[in-house]
Amino acid sequence: MNHEPLRALRDRRSVPASQLGAPGPDARALRQLLEVAVRVPDHGKLAPFRMILLEGEAKLAFGARLSALLESRPNLSDAKREKERRRYEYAPLVIAVVSRIDTGSSVPAIEQQLAAGNVAHNLLLGAQALGFGAQWLTGWAAYDEDVAALLGLGANEGIIGFVHVGTPVMEAPERERPAVDEVVSSWTP
């Protein structure tokens, strides 16, 4: 059996957003990335997801607006505030992945959210396949009502995460992974 086709999956790793720089995907590569992103398991063919692109000045303005929102949060350390202020300065492209729950569907909401989560995962895999680095981040902004309003999300929508895409400025660090035998078991009756 040829295991080489699994190499890209075996070697996949997130590149910290602060280690991503220009260039990002050009128009053709971005289109390819978005086309593979939506090829996910989707019970009921609901397409319970959408993506919002943050690029250029709009991305920086979004980061500035998030920073302004943090000013009203007194429990945040100065270091955390600074990290959040700069988060959108590095990668040339940030994609907000949004779940859209069809409440009238018989498909459970969790399955719809998982489909949207798979969009984010496909963005990571697609970015790597195109020679870019990427990181999927959530943090406070993914769960904040003011951020949802800033992005124009509807009542049935939620942020799955922000996928930062760019060119790695240094080799991505590897992290310890779970041992397969520690996370896999066989069920027996």
Rank of each mutant, 00 (worst) to 15 (best):
M1H: 09
T188M: 06
L54S: 10
R28T: 15
L9Y: 05
L124P: 04
V183L: 11
A142H: 02
V180F: 09
T167I: 08
M170F: 01
G166Y: 02
V97T: 11
V180L: 15
A149I: 05
L130M: 08
E89G: 14
S106K: 13
G139D: 03
G56M: 01
Y90N: 15
L76R: 04
L46A: 12
E145V: 12
L33D: 04
S185H: 05
G63T: 11
L6Y: 09
E55Y: 05
F162N: 11
A179K: 14
Q128N: 09
E111S: 13
R50C: 13
L93D: 08
P5S: 10
E171Y: 05
E171N: 12
D181A: 15
T103I: 11
A109K: 06
R50L: 11
A17L: 03
L153C: 09
A17Q: 02
Q19K: 15
A61H: 10
L33S: 07
Q128T: 15
I159P: 06
A37Y: 00
Q32G: 04
V147K: 01
P178L: 13
I110L: 12
E176H: 08
T138N: 06
R31G: 12
G117D: 03
R50Q: 13
E171T: 15
R10L: 15
A115R: 07
L9D: 03
S106W: 02
L34E: 05
K45S: 14
I110P: 00
L123P: 06
R100N: 11
A68H: 10
E84H: 07
D11E: 13
G104P: 05
R31E: 14
L76G: 02
